[in-house]
Design a protein around this nucleic acid. Sequence first.
DNA 1: AAATACTTTTGCGATTTTTGAAATGAAAAG
DNA 2: CTTTTCATTTCAAAAATCGCAAAAGTATTT
Lengths: 294, 294
Amino acid sequence: MKSRSDDLYFLLSVVDSGGFSAAAEQLEVSVTRVSRAITRLEQSLNTTLLNRTTRKVSLTEEGRLFVEKVRGGLAALEEAEELLAIRKQKPAGRLRVDAANPFLLHQIVPHVRDFREAYPDIELELTASDRIVDLLERRIDVAIRIGPLEDSSLHARPIARSPLSVVASPDYLKRRGNCDSPDALRDHDIIGFTAPEALNFWYIGQGVRVRPSIRASSGEAIRQLCLSGNGLAYLSRFMIGADIEQGNLVELLSDHLVSPNPRELVNAVYYRNTTLSARIQVFLDFFETRWNFL
Amino acid sequence: MKSRSDDLYFLLSVVDSGGFSAAAEQLEVSVTRVSRAITRLEQSLNTTLLNRTTRKVSLTEEGRLFVEKVRGGLAALEEAEELLAIRKQKPAGRLRVDAANPFLLHQIVPHVRDFREAYPDIELELTASDRIVDLLERRIDVAIRIGPLEDSSLHARPIARSPLSVVASPDYLKRRGNCDSPDALRDHDIIGFTAPEALNFWYIGQGVRVRPSIRASSGEAIRQLCLSGNGLAYLSRFMIGADIEQGNLVELLSDHLVSPNPRELVNAVYYRNTTLSARIQVFLDFFETRWNFL
DNA sequence: AAATACTTTTGCGATTTTTGAAATGAAAAG
DNA sequence: CTTTTCATTTCAAAAATCGCAAAAGTATTT
């Protein structure tokens, strides 16, 4: 509540450098300041953080726990500042973004107006392709992919997660009855994928390989089929979140859903291990805060 | 680097309450202070965070991004303080912890000496049981479980993740050759579980159901079999981390491992949705920082 | 258009904190 | 026993923060 972040930085420096004077030198401040920062901190927390034996300082057990958590917190704060620094560079230029069609429609398109307003100098080019295509050849800067990545020659960074849910339309459920347990799936119509077959593996309980009575080749098609009461589907939250909120689809078996699972991860894929271009950076930061599928 | 946490709290309050005066009232300080805090912050960051139109304040786009990150950071810092507060209560009494045998051996037992030293008033009782047993009847306070949870009547909290790796002993590999691709698994001896069969599903590529040529009923047995060169095994990092470091086991197919997956999550299970007892809290905090399997 | 009703910002003296240099104290090293 | 190496404390100067009251805006109302 009251601890000044400056003092926390001092603490970290002391811990890392192993002494007050060393920390002072490292931070280019007087030893007095360091000493006082720690004292202030300890008093404010009413705890002894550092065990001072004249030659060395060592962390008390509470200090250890405290420092551990503090590190993460300060890192986040610094990231926040860094964000602004990047943004100040007024990123500009062309940015080619690729995503699977449903993701593009449901989670990117609705926000591009705001994005363009925030970064008017970035020319956004959106493309849709279901599989990972040749990013390099098509000059794509960043691709959003859902689920496990196949090509590991590219670099990827997880940026969000979109759990999968079993859903059905209310009228279907009225006709066919509810579905309370994984075993009850047998009594229902399942809308599945034509290919790859791995998509018809649902992460429920121990994992179930379903036998679809209807198949479609795209998630969007499955969603439509489900909305019009053709059966149960297992889809990513990002494309049915709105449907659920509006009551057009009902979640089933939520107690038996297994999370995390390989298909719920949303990754940003790009080449270059090195630092991302400001364009890509701001794009990801911008959208990360808007993707609000749980 | 220089932003003060106090000012950040002011910022948050302004954002949440929707105005300077409202924030001032909420924080029980003068409006002047709030205004100055924001000004100071903005100058220090050299950025306009708040868009003041007389009737209301709204976040600028940079402000939005900034606040978002800051929230997380401050939350972590507060957690750190809270930790100390809990610890100050000198938690005492009996704490019954249950875990699967290998986890108990590899990740708990090695640290109990330190734990006892840190919390001398807690009487630790450790039990091992492979499946979730009747926690209530056996009076277990907290159980550590790896992988998906079956009984959802209990409350669980993910506390760590322990990825799974495909491993083999160096001498086995010398004899039988390397294993570069998921397909190459066919040419190798697999050490699998006798039951449940679901454990012989490996999260590699699209997911592979392996056909073990040797089976054992416990992870520890599988580990031993693997160490003595009987074939490939797919085990949690927490039980083979040391083996890998010491070179007694070699990781295979790491490029094809799929993460996250349902079996890598380490959960703390307990009844009570309400606030955890100090005992359980400190136990989890203490060990979380020591479990260092990636 | 002018007046009104809110808000935020600013000027300024008083008050509280913070700072560095040097003094002090304390434990290890020679 | 003396020297060295740190950390803490003292003290006066310097800096920052604070609150009051006045000022400066900007929607809404008259």
